[in-house]
């Protein structure tokens, strides 16, 4: 998707530790990402990729460490931080009782996006012919495309994507690849959890399991 270029920004995390259910999932993790950059999170199941994405979104809270946007701690204004990111987690947040267009239009209106943005996002992800169908009949892959279209129309500089390639067919993969590189060209940032593919060859890799949990939990 095209659009105005984003202001230059920097998003970073320093010495993040996170405990879930009494267990350390992230230990002493730091990262830094600037406008136009992409980062792929890697690590085995349960290594904390999803947790890190939720931390970055401000949905979860780190036991210690800080996340900063242009030097400001994100926890000082979580709503403002939410507004500058698009998030696609494991759950698609698609309401079955509404049509695809209604679903997307609702999120567009919260984000101040226009109806034309909704149409364009649907076209990008091959949803235009499904626009007036209730989401109840969509397949898992189609619902996932709706979730990705929501990110695409969010007009937010930072995209956080959790395994975005799951359940996508080749056409949708292509659409996603094009959307992601267009976003980077606008000066956007992308962080995505993934296990192995070449969706973003230019992306840096962050190994989530940098340190052994056992040594750090002592």
């Amino acid at each position: 998707m095209s659009g105005p270029v984003f202001n230059t920004a920097e998003f970073s995390g320093a010495r993040l530790n996170c405990q879930r259910g009494g267990r350390m999932v992230l230990t002493n993790l730091s990262f830094r990402i600037a406008s136009g950059e992409a980062m792929v999170l890697r690590g085995p199941n349960g290594s904390g990729k999803t947790t890190l994405l939720r931390l970055m979104a401000g949905l979860a809270r780190a036991s210690s460490g800080a996340l900063t946007w242009n030097g400001d701690d994100i926890s000082e204004d979580l709503s403002a931080h939410g507004a500058r990111l698009g998030f696609a987690g494991h759950l698609d947040a698609v309401k079955s009782a509404q049509t695809v267009r209604e679903n997307l239009f609702f999120w567009a209106s919260l984000r101040g996006a226009r109806a034309s943005d909704v149409e364009r996002a649907m076209a990008t992800f091959g949803l235009s012919h499904l626009a007036d169908i209730t989401a109840r009949v969509l397949s898992a892959g189609q619902r996932h495309r709706v979730a990705l279209a929501r990110v695409a129309l969010s007009n937010a500089p930072l995209w956080l994507l959790d395994e975005p390639t799951n359940t996508l067919d080749d056409a949708a993969l292509n659409a996603l690849r094009n959307t992601l590189s267009a976003h980077l060209h606008r000066g956007g940032m992308i962080v995505m959890a993934s296990h192995g593919d070449s969706l973003l060859p230019q992306a840096r890799t962050l190994d989530v399991r940098q340190t052994q949990p056992a040594s750090a939990a002592a």
Partner: peptide, 14 residues
């Protein structure tokens, strides 16, 4: 019991 819980998790993690 909090200590025991942590010890169990560490065992599982190690």
């Amino acid at each position: 019991s909090a200590k025991i819980r942590t010890a169990r998790f560490n065992l599982a993690a190690a």
